[in-house]
Amino acid sequence: MNTLAAEPRTITGKAVKALLLEDRMPAVVYGPKKEATPVTISLREFKRILRENGESVVVDITGIGASMQALIQEVSRDPITNEPRHADFYAIEKGAKVEVAVPISFIGESQAVKEGASLVKVIHEIEVEADPSKLPNEIEVDISSLATIGDQIRISDIKFPTGVVVKLEADEIVVLVQHVAEEEETTEAPNMDAIEVEQKGKTDESEEAAAE
């Protein structure tokens, strides 16, 4: 399991930006039996964990008392660079299971899509419950079974790791293939009555001008 060494943090507010220049990122650890504790962690190490595991990952946090397992609850990012700037960690009670939204990784190639159909990804993550040690970083969904228009993959079609309980309905659609929507060009028919009235009006005006 990934480990992050945390240090207690007293700096708050705008001053925390200076920590990032020292490869330290502000964070907070909290839980049912853990009072919210401001800390700093290694920015480089945190980015490595995200890169290799995604955000749905449990880490061991050390340095603030007894070592504890915590789930990455939320990551705040810079709106321009998308670099992580702050993280919330949810401390997990020993022996407790966790619920988390695990991202879907779509793999394989659909024959229907190769032939011009449109692939519609209905959901992009799946809510699951599991022991922290059995929590998957992602759930693979193979779309190679989508061979013809109308084919679908539902939750019940996916094989989940042992010990992982899915919190969605079994018949919920995950992905499907359908015809590519075509925009129909519509040409509005001209209003002949309006044209006739307009032309008549011009004729009347011409006759009046000639009479003058």
Rank of each mutant, 00 (worst) to 15 (best):
R9C: 10
A27N: 10
F106W: 05
G116T: 02
V166H: 06
G116I: 02
M25R: 01
G54Q: 00
A66H: 09
E83Y: 03
T12Q: 13
M192Q: 12
L20K: 10
V113Y: 06
V177S: 04
D171V: 04
R154S: 14
K47A: 07
E188S: 10
V39K: 01
S156V: 11
L71Q: 06
R48V: 10
N137D: 13
I11A: 14
V120I: 15
R48E: 12
H124S: 15
P32V: 00
I123G: 07
V29I: 14
D204V: 14
K200T: 12
P84D: 06
I143C: 06
Q199C: 06
D171C: 08
A66T: 12
V197I: 14
Q69R: 10
E45M: 02
P79T: 09
A112S: 10
R77V: 15
K202S: 12
E182N: 11
Y30Q: 11
K14Q: 11
V100R: 01
N53T: 01
E115H: 11
I41N: 01
A66Q: 12
M192S: 11
I72Q: 04
K202I: 15
K159F: 00
T81H: 08
I92T: 09
G163V: 09
E188R: 07
E22M: 12
V197W: 04
N2C: 01
A210L: 12
L176P: 07
D193K: 09
R44Q: 11
L176S: 15
V175Q: 00
L71K: 03
S105K: 14
I143F: 03
H124D: 13
V28G: 07
L146P: 08
H86D: 12
A5T: 13
E185W: 03
I123R: 06
Q178C: 04
E196Q: 12
T40K: 04
E184Q: 12
V16A: 04
I153W: 00
S156Y: 02
I158Y: 02
L146R: 10
I80Y: 14
N53I: 00
I72S: 02
V39D: 05
P132S: 09
F89I: 05
Q152R: 15
M68W: 01
T187Y: 08
A211H: 10
I173Y: 02
A194R: 12
I195F: 08
F160Q: 08
D131N: 13
E115A: 07
E7I: 02
K159I: 10
A130P: 07
R44H: 06
E184S: 10
T81A: 13
V180H: 09
I126D: 01
P103R: 03
G95K: 08
D23R: 09
V174K: 00
E212L: 13
S56Y: 01
E52V: 07
D157R: 04
E83W: 00
E45K: 08
G201F: 03
T62K: 12
I139R: 03
N53A: 09
R24S: 10
E208T: 11
V75I: 15
E207P: 02
G108L: 03
P26F: 00
A181R: 13
E208W: 08
A189P: 04
G65Y: 06
K200H: 11
V165G: 06
P79F: 02
T40V: 11
I139L: 13
S144T: 11
V57R: 00
E138L: 11
K121I: 03
G116D: 01
F160I: 04
E138D: 14
I72T: 06
D88Y: 01
E22P: 11
E138H: 14
E45A: 08
D78G: 10
I149Y: 05
M25S: 04
V16Q: 07
